[in-house]
């Protein structure tokens, strides 16, 4: 009679969002368990990024509930959600271009160490920022680029830096919006390996087009079509789901 399953880390229920007459999110329900790597797939215009934006708080949902770590996120601001442990990256890497790689991570770390209303001690030489920053850069393989300006990094490096900055905020859940977008084959596989490693430390919810990466990386997958979740489950379930085949996979396999 006692339910032993732990509560999900993220539980989205009855989420709705409408732009004018266009319903972009319809009664969406998604569960992301602790430690899970969860993928959202779907054709263009399915409302994937809109959904991510509603979880991170950049867009307000019209109705529904987003329960994260037993806290309701709806109604909270972007920075409040980030503080609760929701980290994210964007489709086009969003960095501080006029800062160096190391400064980018140090800035992200600042918020992890309490407020930043500190007016006196020089931040650039603060060991309590430098040491963890170098540690994180080493983890994502950007140590050699520590003094390069973010604006001068290569595409893949920018994406890695963005993930590094998210990690610096010690998130419980990482929202990744097409982490492999614009990457070559080799870079993509490196990223997949990196994300798999990351998945052992933090739960991940990511949006991706590329089926190969999704099936190899995700523990579970939710399929979004026209704002509605039409299927949810592990890779086999999704592959064999007739609805998914009709709406989505069929088209690709036939091509």
């Amino acid at each position: 009679m006692v339910d032993f399953t732990p509560p999900p880390l993220l539980h989205i229920r009855y989420l709705n969002k409408q732009f004018g007459a266009l319903k972009v999110t319809r009664d969406v329900e998604i569960r992301v368990e602790q430690g899970e790597i969860h993928a959202i797939i779907g054709p263009n215009g399915a409302g994937k990024t809109t959904l991510i934006n509603q979880i991170s708080g950049e867009l307000a949902a019209d109705s529904g509930s987003i329960l994260f770590d037993n806290r309701e996120l709806c109604g909270l601001r972007v920075h409040q959600r980030a503080r609760l442990g929701v980290g994210r990256t964007y489709q086009t890497s969003s960095l501080f271009d006029q800062m160096t790689t190391q400064q980018n991570v140090m800035l992200a770390l600042q918020n992890q160490q309490g407020h930043s209303f500190r007016f006196w001690r020089k931040a650039a030489t603060d060991p309590s920022l430098i040491h963890p920053a170098l540690g994180i850069l080493e983890r994502v393989g950007l140590l050699d680029q520590q003094n390069d300006y973010a604006a001068n990094l290569a595409h893949g490096q920018r994406r890695q830096l963005e993930i590094a900055m998210s990690l610096a905020t010690k998130p419980k859940l990482l929202l990744l919006d097409e982490p492999m977008a614009g990457m070559g084959q080799e870079e993509s596989w490196k990223m997949v390996a990196a994300l798999r490693k990351l998945g052992s430390e933090v739960s991940i919810l990511f949006v991706e087009h590329d089926m190969e990466t999704v099936f190899s990386l995700a523990d579970r997958i939710s399929v979004l079509v026209y704002g509605r979740v039409i299927a949810s489950g592990d890779a086999d379930t999704i592959r064999n789901d007739p609805n998914v085949r009709d709406a989505y996979l069929g088209g690709i396999e036939d091509a």
Binding site: S56, E58, R77, V78, H79, A82, R83, G87, R88, S94, L95, F96, D97, Q98, M99, Q103, M106, L107, A108, Q110, N111, S116, F117, R118, F119, W120, R121, K122, A123, A124, D126, M165, T169
Partner: peptide, 29 residues
């Protein structure tokens, strides 16, 4: 000059360069 070099200054610069990112990182810009 001191303020700008300290953590506060880094946040202020960040708010100019990329305010959305600052919020996503958890800063109450």
């Amino acid at each position: 000059y001191k303020f700008l070099g300290a953590r506060f200054g880094q946040v202020i610069r960040g708010c100019k360069q990329n305010p959305e990112k600052m919020q996503a990182l958890g800063f109450a810009t």
